[in-house]
Design a protein around this nucleic acid. Structure first.
Lengths: 109, 109
DNA sequence: TCAATATATCGTAATATTGCGATGCTAACT
DNA sequence: AGTTAGCATCGCAATATTACGATATATTGA
């Protein structure tokens, strides 16, 4: 096996899990924080900021892009990455609804 | 390789990624939704609700438990699972801060 | 004690992820 | 055209995840 059975889950469950999985890595969290804090979009400065090889950063960026969380625009020799607002909003909504569905903040057993 | 370099990231980045990774699977999202909606904690009814084998469900529950997201209490032959409020709050805070740090809802490139 | 029920764990196969060196590709500059 | 800078992709090794059958463990009730 080793393959997730997506067929048996709802679209929302699958969508949320894909978005969360894309973010659920410290390097990708750090990358997103960098992109956000450098409110203009930075490019491959990420390689210097984080302590990972260029190939590794590029791969993480690819995964974030594939999940639709960031967007890359070619700017001469460099590539400018920034947050995809639509997806960001969707993630906020999906995760907010999910987390918010638990309201009783006490053990039940 | 295949091993994440946790040393080079902050505690917060690592903590958030561990929590998100635990949730970032449709089966585990479904499990959590079931636990929440059956506001008393259900047990192994999950096996019937979802279309996965008992061993698989048990493994997913273990991962959620290891991440501290749920808690299991033995109740006779059954085990009663419920949300761990502390962790739930922590996750809401960490993720909320992270998502909230992006405020400008427009492309920058 | 014995059987039944509920859950956990083991072992294993298939697949996915992580990280990186090496290499390829493209745009800008000379 | 040749060179350089910036990024993407390939290929690989190490490790992690997913799923499940088989089996172990523990509690309840006959």
């Amino acid at each position: 096996m080793g393959i997730t059975k997506t067929e048996i889950f709802t679209q929302e469950q699958n969508r949320l899990s894909v978005l969360l999985k894309a973010i659920a890595h410290p390097a990708r969290i750090a990358i997103l924080q960098q992109i956000i804090s450098a409110n203009a979009c930075i490019c491959g400065d990420l390689v210097e900021e984080l302590g990972l090889a260029q190939a590794t950063i590029s791969q993480h960026l690819k995964e974030l892009k594939q999940a639709g969380i960031i967007q890359g625009t070619i700017d001469g020799v460099k590539v400018c990455y920034c947050i995809e607002p639509e997806t960001w909003r969707l993630l906020q909504k999906l995760f907010g609804d999910f987390m918010g569905s638990y309201v009783d903040m006490r053990h039940c057993c």
